[in-house]
Write a protein that binds this DNA or RNA. Sequence first.
DNA 1: CTGAAAGCGCTTACAG
DNA 2: CTGAAAGCGCTTACAG
Lengths: 339, 339
Amino acid sequence: MEKNTSERAVTLKDLAKELGIHPSTVSRVLHSDPDSARGAASEATAQRIRELAAEVGYSPDPQATSLRTRRTQLLGVVVPRLSDLVLAIMYEGIEEAAARIGYSAFVTNSRDDVDEQRRKVEMMLARRVDGLIIGDSHLDGDVLPDLRHRAVPFVLMNRRHPGFPSSTCDDTRGGELVAEHLWDKGHRRVCVIAGEPYASTAVDRTAGFVDRWRALGGDIPDDSIVWSRFDTQGGREAAERILAAGTAPTALFAVNDFAAIGAMGALRTHGMAVGADCAVVGYNDTSLAAELPIPLSSVRSPMAEIGRSAVRLLQRVIRGEPVESVRLAPTLQVRESSA
Amino acid sequence: MEKNTSERAVTLKDLAKELGIHPSTVSRVLHSDPDSARGAASEATAQRIRELAAEVGYSPDPQATSLRTRRTQLLGVVVPRLSDLVLAIMYEGIEEAAARIGYSAFVTNSRDDVDEQRRKVEMMLARRVDGLIIGDSHLDGDVLPDLRHRAVPFVLMNRRHPGFPSSTCDDTRGGELVAEHLWDKGHRRVCVIAGEPYASTAVDRTAGFVDRWRALGGDIPDDSIVWSRFDTQGGREAAERILAAGTAPTALFAVNDFAAIGAMGALRTHGMAVGADCAVVGYNDTSLAAELPIPLSSVRSPMAEIGRSAVRLLQRVIRGEPVESVRLAPTLQVRESSA
DNA sequence: CTGAAAGCGCTTACAG
DNA sequence: CTGAAAGCGCTTACAG
């Protein structure tokens, strides 16, 4: 039998015919793990089968296998956008963890649009994924109860939602860390570039900061909290609004590194020196933060681990085991922007 | 028939039984497009079928369909890493263009490692994708001839390789644009942060710059070209090497925005003002460039369009039609960093 | 216009 | 230890 280079892939039947045995025997051998022959076939037969399979590069047709077993070994992942570095890193964690347990990850962008999210989820289900990792959950979203009602195995990632299992950073704690740091540095007039109000990440980081700030005795009026897009431009616009509003703060907390970078740009435009005139702290400690011309202080969240942990969580859900949400601890990296 | 909320999905057979007709009739109707009944069934029957299908939310099992048709409607995409913003944006273009023609995109990271690349390609083929978009081609790579020999439909994206169809930016032209710009601004002592020598993007951008520079009458010794990683840290390290080497250049061309940002950091560390003391130009014009504290000049490449174009190219390859590589035109965005 | 049959490539009880 | 059969959910010639 030649190594296969033609159109048609080698099938179980081809192997069986070549060896003069029944396809079911080949199947049995190839699906029990090598050491435990488990009565699948005699060791001699098993060896002949495995040798031939390796020689011709046999790879079972996953469509046929799925049709029979009712499992696709596919994990669907829905994120707002992979061009958000934070989600891209989490996805790398997902891909790695999924591969380790025999799944492939299948990812799609929803642009943080609820209609698109619903369409993409349906697309994933139409593809018959074994489970779903939702990375774009909205606090007011209604797709989750529907998924639960349809008994679809799923977990949330990055953003949490009360009542559903999730793998996230402890964003409340992250906000607290920033409040403590800026308070210690003597800042008393601070503003928060808070992100999108529909995302738990934004809400929790902001709430963690504000609550801790007030507990420390600080004052922070509501109009010091400016909701914004998560990206660089959103951060710049939010900072512009803050600086236009009157007395400039001595420190800014942006709940996202990219928003923080945008804010740094706005400060410079207004002739203010980042660090000296106004401290800036970001969130996620993306690889850029440490390398910026003025290195950015940032809350480090274990992004890849959040992705890996989501996979482990989902695996338990698929198996019907009880699960507990995971909230991973953040740490603060202090750099020149707020030193 | 109730809307399906149980474990088992509704099948063609279920629909047929409910309507008292044969499954093959249901299949025929559901697969011819609505307006052209094309003798699939009487209009009356067709209508009943479509209504019931919509009512119960029938979605055909793609595994069963694939097994029968020998097509998965899956496009495999291999990229170095989605956490590289450039690839993430290209992937968004791929996803959109693929959906438009009835395919789903299935993406994986290879970390720019040749072994990993081979593994990931094999994984994609084992999943029986209908075609492959290779975004991590190495100039010295040998996986491409093997793929061609096995008659796998594939195209390259972002990085080209002589003899294989690709969708890329005209990187040579991009390098030329930068040379012309810096020359016009009066710079005569320039260095190139050149990226990885195995990537055609790096090689072409650098060659385009150098060749044009010399054609303009400029001098650029070989040790002014410093190979580097594509990321921020790689750019910083390269710039450090350049600054340590002796006479500082008056301009730096980094073949990647992130490398350019790292270089800006290194300049600042050495007390040099970006723009005033040393111009910096990047490549790709990622969303960050315009929003940086010192806005970065950058060659704009049509990233999403490169992805979309790769899909169209691949579709032609899958159909067995002749294809021509696509090289999309770049434009230069001049900003404060080199104004 | 519609039905009946075969078969895509697997897995999995069930015999023997 | 191995074979034979059934069936997962589709599509597609082939009849009539």
